[in-house]
Amino acid sequence: MDLRRANLRAAGHISGTRYVPFERQHPKRRIAESRTMTQTLLQTDGLTVRFGGHVAVDAVSCSFHAGELTAIVGPNGAGKTTYFNLISGQIPASAGRVTLMGEDISRLGVADRCRRGLGRAFQLTNLFPSLSVLENIRLVIQSRQHKGFGLFSMADSHTELTVAAMAILERVRLDNQKDLLVSELSHGDQRKLEVALMIGLDPMVYMFDEPTAGMSVDEAPVILDLIAEIKADRERTVLLVEHKMDVIRTLADRIIVLHNGALAADGDPETVMASDVVQEAYMGKELDHV
């Protein structure tokens, strides 16, 4: 385990390429990492969005800390994915603020939030279907290294990108499929690639939206192991929308419950699971998911 993680972290140093870890490119990140582990990485203050008269996310205030995996649960339509969309910027908030490592990012676009260290994976597979698996990862690493505006060099001559991408593909065990088009991959492998993109992005805040949805029982553990590895890196924080209770039990350090768009409960897993609000709002209605 440790070896593989070290392998990724040092991905760029293999064969002396010019890979620069993301955190070294961003002074703000360096500061963030030098602080203590209970450092708040992400914070939402009164985050609200209304669609017409319907309040989809209702004044959610919450902080997420380094080294913590927070599971976000709630019945269907509780606003979990919308809350994610507000944080990563796909939907503009009607009110409230999102703060990433002390910086107010509420007014920034999706790309800028990503560049500041917010990594979002999607519930429905959302990749570049007619590009190869390797190219998908390379694009992410290229973005992280701000090389997208290289106009006159050959993309394939950037071996440092390929080396880093291959290290990640090995880690998610997709290295044998590197030349396949994404559209030729199985659903499970596409989900793996989705996680691989996140690892390639190496954000401070990882946001997973049902990462194992639709995966077979023997494929899901690979994803869960990867998320556990990310969590074990005490500098990042992970937000996880998940329905499967066994996944939450093994991974989560903390659970927040959304109900009708509002924050209904927040605390460590045992307390939250036992609380009335969860029994009523979530477990009661959604027993079939458990």
Partner: peptide
Amino acid sequence: IVNSPFGRVLQAIRENDFRAEAIGYR
């Protein structure tokens, strides 16, 4: 140009502009 890193980003945008934005390309 189409085979440069820039060209690859263009292809990514053509494929899925939503995701291209989400991995940090403006």
